[in-house]
Design a protein around this nucleic acid. Sequence first.
DNA 1: CGGCTCATTGATAACTCTCAACGCAGGTGG
DNA 2: CCACCTGCGTTGAGAGTTATCAATGAGCCG
Lengths: 247, 247
Amino acid sequence: MDHCRDAVTLLRDFAMSACDQCLVRNRAICAALDKDEINSLNAIGRRRSLVAGESLIWEGEDSVLVANVIEGVLKLSTGTEDGREQIVGVVYPSDFIGRPFGGKTNHGVTALTDARVCVFSRGDFDAFAREHPALEHKLLQRTLTELDRTRGWMLLLGRKSASEKVASFLLELSDRLSPVTCETTHSGAAARFVLPFSRQQIADVLGLTIETVSRQFTRLRNEAIIELPSRREVVIHDRQALISEAG
Amino acid sequence: MDHCRDAVTLLRDFAMSACDQCLVRNRAICAALDKDEINSLNAIGRRRSLVAGESLIWEGEDSVLVANVIEGVLKLSTGTEDGREQIVGVVYPSDFIGRPFGGKTNHGVTALTDARVCVFSRGDFDAFAREHPALEHKLLQRTLTELDRTRGWMLLLGRKSASEKVASFLLELSDRLSPVTCETTHSGAAARFVLPFSRQQIADVLGLTIETVSRQFTRLRNEAIIELPSRREVVIHDRQALISEAG
DNA sequence: CGGCTCATTGATAACTCTCAACGCAGGTGG
DNA sequence: CCACCTGCGTTGAGAGTTATCAATGAGCCG
């Protein structure tokens, strides 16, 4: 474990400089660009750090900036006038943030953990993208994948019970978080991870209340399917049981 | 009204021939192409008619074809193993269907009404798109918009009550159906329209049961907010009331 | 005129929410 | 160093909304 964490830390310290040392250089949409193009793109962007809880984009504002996630986890969320909130997406390193090509941003973007992103003014990015079809292609592929994922989530929100929701949530997290934790089982999914979410945020992802989430967690713990070493840590003991609970 | 319906019928009768007479020529992604390019695209596609209930794509199969909707309404849906279903999208004329650039199709596509589509083999379409960045750009814009719409729907599924869901649903339909009904109020939304959905399908859109949908409909009727001339017809009498119910 | 599907209506049950109290952990200040 | 305070999470009791089960009704087609 430790040698892995060291490597990650090392890479992170270098990543503040330029794109060719960027942690997500080969996974983000930038992978579509060659060295010269990357330099042009780099010229119109800048790195920015966010502390947990800090917002990058607010719901309803005109789309003024877009970004790539370098490190950390961020949520996309909307809410009703009377204060109910729904998290409509979660983005991880190498994911793209924002609404290029006009239009309003219909959801806020807020850091769940401390995060580092690579931001562009939307106008600059739009112009650059229009001149680089390979970049637009990557962005299209990414957007199509995100649309698929989002539609899968609709099944969870519309048709699954609280226990199915929580089980599905834990499984998805263990997949999506595995590249950073480095501690993986067979198929590359993490058996132990740190939740980037508070209980309230989990509830906002799943369309539940905080109490229902809490009860499901303790039930899973009592059935020895998971372990909860601390509020934010989860260990999956019986992945198969989770899978069959996920529906 | 009648002169309008005549015009629509007239256009529809012509539309079977070539792209330049296509009903959605200027609204679909094809609008990105000039006359020569349209002809090349036309050469690799073909028109196809679907009767209500007929499927074009099945959940889980490899993505083999993509299409543009010319006429009619289709649903995108997924389900759980035990038979629960969730409609994850509804497509209207000029909308794009399918999953270009590899990957499995995660949701089935089924006609809700009789429909006519313009289909392409996915491989052919992919190759064509890669050579025509303007087309990919249109597709990207469309996909981004669809992603926004889908995320808005997540708020409905996760956080809204049955009455809010039904009200929101009727309002969205009255917007989306207005171009074809031609009978519009102030802002281009139809006050009277024919539902392309059965009660079960409405339930599958909203994450409710058929009985709950039915009860909400009769309640809205009893409160004189809507009128239900037949099973499939809706007249909105008090749009403002619907808006405030939609949450 | 059946026989069918689809929709409505009613009674009851189940699940999740709401409201409320308590507990734990981390941080601050005496 | 301990006490207290505060934020977050857990647990419990009860209420409310929606699902489930069941029966009836309306429209359509052979």
